[in-house]
């Protein structure tokens, strides 16, 4: 098989424990069935080794198991074998031979009634014989082959931009989604979202339904998107918005990328308690939780107080952020707090605090302009090795006579006479 198959990805190392347990149990059952001589069990076990579901991902073993099961007329095994053989590109002779092998495995799977294998055969035909590909797709779709129907709908919506074709394609996606096809839910939800953006309507019940169906069909993003909407409509403490929480949980089960949100919502009450009890580390963690971009908890107003407490409690990393957040606050003493926190950070060795404060003083941004105080802060950052700040000072000297000229370093030494002569000689030559 090729080193990099088009359809075999690396197993996800961060899948949720619940899913891992499910997959491990399934693989154990398949193993038992395979040991008892059931080729369906060996096919399922081969597929598990192909993707690393409940077992370590191991393609040579997958190949052995799938080939035997495919020879014993297990269509899903032929499909898996085709997935393993399908190369990412087919330029070299070797790749073309692989493509051929993949094609015959898919073909055998298709003949054995695996409709997804038929779609793969059609996909290989796409490049050479579009008419045959279309015909095979129509036939496969009529038999209930979801992937082929989906692809036909895709083609319909791309080849023909008329409103009628678009509506027709979306009707197919909606039907497929209602019958549990995740990708059709994704396609249809995307279209409904675009329609909605055009109408500037609130989230339509139809979009919610499609998102909910796609979420149940295993899509992480659709769960997440719906969860964000439900969360925003909810009231009360985040950890008590049960409907949204259930959706965030589901998003995490489907795709591990979304798990941090669930963790954050569940961690929040304890951190609030800890911060109120004076644990600076908890205040910092709480502030970070409110700062996480894209999180439903993201709120500069909520992050402000805990970040400030963290800085005052000795978490120096918190000071720059606390100061920046304070400057967004309209309270009359906000600037004074920001200044205090910048100074704490800067004195504690956070170069970022000195630089941010220095720039604000020099530019009169957030504080009254005070180059006499600001420039020394920037100059000492430059002197302690921040070459980007030296460059910044150099730029500032062009327009601001008060800016200190940074001390020359050895970045651009003038050429010695011999080197100059040598260069001239080469140019002449």
């Amino acid at each position: 098989f090729p080193t990099s198959s088009a359809l075999v990805e690396r197993a996800d190392p961060d899948e949720s424990p619940a899913r891992r347990e499910r997959e491990e149990a399934a693989a154990r059952a398949d193993r038992t069935a395979c040991d008892e001589g059931k080729s369906s069990g060996c096919a399922a076990l081969g597929l598990a080794y192909l993707t690393g579901a409940g077992v370590p991902q191991n393609r040579p073993l997958a190949e052995v198991l799938l080939r035997e099961a495919c020879d014993a007329d297990e269509g899903t095994a032929c499909m898996g074998l085709g997935q393993l053989y399908l190369p990412r590109v087919a330029f070299s002779e070797e790749d073309k031979a692989m493509l051929e092998q993949a094609g015959s495995a898919f073909d055998r799977g298709c003949r054995l009634g695996v409709l997804d294998a038929c779609e793969r055969v059609a996909a290989i035909l796409d490049g050479t014989d579009e008419v045959a590909a279309d015909a095979l797709r129509r036939d496969t779709c009529a038999k209930g082959g979801t992937a082929s129907c989906r692809r036909l709908a895709d083609d319909l919506s791309m080849r023909d931009e008329s409103a009628a074709a678009q509506t027709e394609a979306q009707r197919v996606f909606a039907r497929l989604c209602r019958s549990g096809d995740r990708e059709s839910c994704v396609s249809h939800a995307r279209w409904l979202t675009q329609q909605q953006e055009r109408d500037e309507d609130s989230r339509s019940p139809e979009l919610r339904e499609i998102q909910s169906l796609g979420c149940r069909a295993g899509d992480g993003y659709l769960c997440h998107d719906l969860a964000m909407a439900v969360f925003a409509e909810g009231s009360g403490p985040p950890e008590q918005r049960v409907e949204a929480l259930a959706l965030f949980d589901r998003a995490c089960d489907n795709e591990s990328d979304f798990c941090s949100i669930r963790t954050a919502i569940h961690a929040r009450p304890l951190l609030v308690q800890g911060c109120e009890a004076g644990r600076a580390q908890d205040c910092y963690a709480l502030g970070e939780l409110y700062q996480a971009p894209g999180s439903p908890l993201e709120s500069a107003a909520d992050a402000r107080a805990p970040m400030g407490k963290a800085c005052e409690g000795g978490i120096i990393e918190a000071c720059t952020i606390a100061a920046e957040l304070a400057l967004q606050d309209s309270a009359p003493d906000a600037a004074a707090r920001a200044e205090r926190w910048y100074r704490t950070g800067c004195a504690g060795g956070q170069a970022g605090s000195c630089i941010a404060f220095g720039r604000r003083l020099v530019d009169g941004d957030g504080f009254p302009r005070d180059p006499g105080q600001g420039y020394p802060l920037l100059a000492s950052a430059c002197a302690s090795g921040r070459t980007d700040i030296c460059d910044e000072l150099e730029t500032r000297t062009a327009t601001d006579p008060e800016a200190p000229v940074p001390v020359a370093d050895n970045s651009y030494l003038p050429d010695d006479p011999e080197a100059l002569e040598e260069r001239q000689r080469r140019i002449n030559e």
């Binding site: 075999v8 690396r10 370590p56 991902q57 191991n58 393609r59 040579p60 073993l61």
Partner: peptide
């Protein structure tokens, strides 16, 4: 890259996937 080695029916199967 991830490497795995699995023994199945007396044969060792090794794989590295990147």
């Amino acid at each position: 890259c991830t490497s795995t080695a699995v023994t199945f029916r007396g044969t060792l199967y090794e794989d590295t996937i990147c």
